[in-house]
Amino acid sequence: MTKSPLILFAFLPAVFALLLSACGESPENPEGGKKVSALKINGSTTVNLPVAEAAEVMRERTGKEIQVDTQGGSSGGISMLGEGLVHLGMASKSLSDEDRKKFPECDFNEIQIGADAVALIVSKDVWSGGKTTITKKEMAGIYEGNITNWNQIGGPDQRIAFFNKEPGRGTWEVFAKWAYGSAGDTPQASFPEVGGNEETRNKVASTRGALSQLSASWADGKTVFALSVKTEDGKLIKPSGENIATGAYPMSRPLFVLSDGDPSGDAREMINFLLSIEGQKIVRKHGYLALADLSK
């Protein structure tokens, strides 16, 4: 009785002992030891949807541990792969030279698993107010703050509530590349920011005069509506499957799983599965274009 409370003091040392023993053993087998560590994947929330579901199937089949996370979006995927923190990255944009330069040690390998597009989506009042198309010039005007009301560009009399995708998101970079050529050339501007796709859809749907960039597959046409892009020669291009496949829609984008050099082991298996008929079905199920749709 008198000594029993002292046991409480033993907790922390016990943890440290455990910690030391664990630290001692882990560096021994970086690859191929008896205890293979989990396959780690991180990156774009857009690519996450099919990959996370594919991981569920793989887990069930092989019993292997596959960890999927979406910290920092595409940029997070690229930088974590670059620093060797994960085995596979996920990115919803092509790698830029800047990305590659940042991690000279890493031999980035882009493996396309599908395709998608960035749609410019608006809320219902804008859509039914007659604004269903947008030009690059109009978009730039909005981004630079020169156009603040939809009626300046043929829409209803309603202020424009532009939600910008937060930095680091593949969606934003694809948008920036279309509008200004590259992320670095984008003018300094500050708007309310949105992160996840559902957050974007939810906020646009519940705000009058709202506009944002969103993965085309999430533009459901019920709560949020995808504008057609009007090219300089007056053509209207919808972010439809066909236009994405042919690349006619200017903000089409490949969906990538990234590896450092040639993937091997579990990473290879995962990629093979994503590229298999079954894996491609999952890609399509989440509203994206499968690779077969692209070659049509």
């Binding site: 920092g72 997070g76 680091g168």
Partner: peptide, 18 residues
């Protein structure tokens, strides 16, 4: 809209900056 110190710290830039 605005930004607080905490909303910035909890946001995507923390990952980008790393």
């Amino acid at each position: 809209s605005g930004q607080t110190l905490t909303s910035k710290l909890g946001g995507s830039e923390t990952n980008i900056a790393y």
